[in-house]
C-alpha cells in the first residue's frame, strides 16, 4: 500500500515537474546575444566614417541571466573579437543583480578602467502593450514598447511562461520575463538564444559591496565628466542604462 502511494506520489511529482517545465519556468538560465550594428553607430562620427570598412558590421557578445523568483544575476559570458575597440562601449563589464521583491538592483559598471557600483531601486518603465507576438528562442512572446530617459524608444518582447518581471540589463516591469529588447536609436538588440529551466539551480546570493552610490549620484557624475557622450545622439544613455 505504501509502495503504491510512493509510486503514485512520485508519478504525481514527476508529472507536475514535467508539466511545470513545459508550461512555466521559475528558475533557470537565459543566454542572450547582444548585437550592435557598428556601421550604423559610426555613421554619426565624422572621422570614423572614412575608414568605416575597417570595422566589422556587427559586434556580438553574449550574456547570461541566471534567475529564480527572488533574484537574477546578469553577467557577460563571451565577446566578439576585440577589433571594435572602445567604440562599442556598451556595458562592457556590467554585472547586474536584481531583487524582484524589494524592487532594487545593484549595477556594477565599468567606464574605461574605473568600476562603479550603483545601488538603487529598479528604474520605473512605463510599458505600453502592443497587440503583436513574436517567437524568440522557440517561445511565443508578447510585445511592449516604452520610452526610456525621456526620448529613447525601446521595444521589448516578454513571455508569460516565465512569470518573473525581469530581463537583460536593467529592463524590468513586464508581467513576464523579457526575452528580446531592441533599442533602434542606438542600433543595439538583445535576443534570447536559449532558455534553460533549472529546477535545482540555486542562484548565488551576491556579496554586498561596501562602496556604492545611488543612481542619481552616478548620473550626475557621468553627465559632468562625460558631456561629450551626450552630444552624440543620445549615446550617453548607454552609460546610464545599458
Amino acid at each position: 500500500m505504501t509502495i503504491n502511494r510512493i509510486i503514485l506520489a512520485t508519478i504525481f511529482i514527476l508529472l507536475s515537474v514535467i508539466g511545470y517545465a513545459q508550461n512555466f519556468i521559475n528558475k533557470g538560465v537565459i543566454t542572450y546575444e547582444r548585437k550592435v550594428q557598428i556601421h550604423k553607430v559610426l555613421e554619426g562620427n565624422s572621422w570614423a566614417k572614412n575608414n568605416i570598412e575597417s570595422f566589422p558590421k556587427f559586434y556580438i557578445s553574449t550574456f547570461d541571466l541566471k534567475f529564480n523568483q527572488d533574484t537574477s544575476v546578469y553577467t557577460k559570458t563571451s565577446e566578439d573579437d576585440q577589433k571594435s575597440g572602445s567604440w562599442a562601449v556598451y556595458s562592457k563589464d556590467n554585472e547586474i543583480i536584481t531583487f524582484f521583491a524589494l524592487e532594487q538592483n545593484i549595477v556594477k559598471r565599468a567606464i574605461y578602467s574605473d568600476v562603479y557600483t550603483v545601488k538603487d531601486s529598479l528604474p520605473k518603465i512605463n510599458w505600453k502593450l502592443v497587440n503583436e507576438t513574436r517567437m524568440i528562442a522557440g517561445i511565443e512572446c508578447k510585445k511592449a514598447t516604452a520610452i526610456i530617459n525621456d526620448s529613447i524608444f525601446v521595444v521589448a518582447f516578454y513571455t508569460e511562461r516565465i512569470q518573473i518581471s525581469g530581463g537583460p540589463e536593467q529592463f524590468n516591469g513586464l508581467p513576464g520575463m523579457i526575452l528580446g529588447v531592441v533599442v533602434p536609436r542606438l542600433h543595439v538588440s538583445y535576443y534570447a538564444q536559449k532558455v534553460t529551466s533549472m529546477e535545482s539551480q540555486t542562484t548565488p546570493m551576491p556579496k554586498q559591496k561596501k562602496q556604492s552610490m545611488t543612481r542619481k549620484e552616478f548620473e550626475e557624475m557621468v553627465m559632468k565628466n562625460m558631456k561629450w557622450a551626450f552630444t552624440n545622439s543620445g549615446i550617453g544613455v548607454l552609460y546610464l542604462f545599458l
Binding site: N126, W127, K128, V130, E160, Q163, G173, L174, P175
Partner: peptide
Amino acid sequence: ANATALVISAKDSILQKFTH
C-alpha cells in the same frame, strides 16, 4: 493558476498594474 491579470489604460495602452 499562473494566469497573468493586468490593466492597461484604455487610451494609450500603458501598462498600469499586473499580477498572477
